[in-house]
């Protein structure tokens, strides 16, 4: 079923009609609704936002053209580098944490055991519940000196920690919750990758006298390498674009220590009414992400 219309030698109106009558237009017609909504909701606003980033617009009126002012102002502001630093920490810690936890659990889940189906569902819970619910739950864990985590710490003779008012602890908790919320996707995808590995590779390794550890190192890891790279890239993108976790838990505080790019853009746009800078932040984020992804994919191809 080729899409290329068969051009009759006397090409003209009749061949177009014939192309149409043969049902060759069908795939394009089927794509049309999706393409239209994507164009209206993503493509047009994208170029509009690009335009805004070069003006001093507010939410109330379209401003004047100010060239690269928003970008230069941004790159010399403390807020921006603070958000940059936290975005990097947040993404890096989340990807590493999710990968270790996800791979560990996927390896366990790949073994025979009773009620395996139940466990798979139960481990996906943190991923499928609404972000607001997970934040309410976690707030209860760390809210004050008597919260569950602090009770456990005190049980072991430690002193209570004020998780949400100390900069470092707040960052730690935000990252921890993000890992908790996103590891199940990693586990699910890695489990599928593990199940796709050809069994005969393990049999061959066993014949060569490889231990389980060696088989893991020389068979399992290389076999899931490509999937792992794609998953880590996806995780990086999703972490950088995450709004819910820091906003709902700390609103970027204390002292802006948990403010990432998205939160910063949100604050500029909706709280400070500075549309131009808000859009500029998002474009800088997008550029940073794209450069990072291109570098990673190129290195992967070379390796």
């Amino acid at each position: 079923m080729s899409l290329v219309a068969e051009r009759a030698p006397y090409a003209g109106r009749s061949s177009v009609r014939q192309w149409w009558n043969n049902g060759n237009a069908l795939p394009y017609l089927l794509l049309l609704p999706s393409a239209v909504v994507i164009g209206v909701v993503i493509l047009i606003p994208f170029f509009e936002a690009l335009q805004y980033s070069f003006t001093n617009s507010s939410l109330l009126e379209v401003g004047k053209f100010v060239g690269l002012d928003n970008y230069t102002k941004l790159l010399s502001s403390k807020d921006f580098w603070n958000a940059f630093r936290f975005s990097v920490i947040f993404a890096l810690a989340n990807v590493i944490g999710c990968y270790i936890l996800g791979l560990g659990l996927a390896l366990l889940m790949n073994m025979e055991m009773p009620f395996r189906g139940f466990f798979r569902v139960a481990l996906l819970l943190p991923w499928i519940i609404p972000s607001v619910v997970s934040i309410v739950s976690w707030r209860w864990m760390v809210a004050d000196h008597n919260a569950v985590f602090n009770q456990i710490i005190q049980l072991f003779g430690g002193r209570p920690i004020f998780f949400l008012s100390n900069n470092d602890w707040a960052q730690f908790i935000v990252v921890l919750i993000k890992i908790w919320r996103s590891f199940p996707f990693m586990m699910l995808s890695l489990l599928a990758a593990l199940q796709g590995i050809d069994r005969s590779l393990y049999e061959a390794a066993a014949l060569d006298g490889a231990t389980k550890w060696k088989a893991f190192w020389h068979v399992t890891l290389p076999q899931i390498r490509d999937v792992s790279i794609v998953l880590c890239l996806l995780m990086t993108i999703w972490s950088v674009n995450d709004f819910d976790t820091p906003f709902l838990l700390t609103q970027g505080g204390p002292a802006n220590s948990t403010e990432n790019f998205v939160l910063l853009a949100y604050k500029y746009t909706f709280a400070r009414n500075d549309l131009g800078t808000g859009a500029a932040i998002s474009f800088v984020t997008l550029i940073i992400l794209m450069v990072f992804i291109v570098i990673m994919l190129r290195r992967q191809r070379e390796a």
Binding site: V41, I42, F46, N241, Y266, S282, L289
Partner: peptide
């Protein structure tokens, strides 16, 4: 189209949100 879907999956939605709002 298939590649465009992948790009949308990564798109920071806040960018589109401002003009849409």
């Amino acid at each position: 189209y298939s590649q465009a879907l992948f790009v949308i999956q990564m798109f920071p939605i806040i960018l589109a949100l401002i003009p849409l709002f």
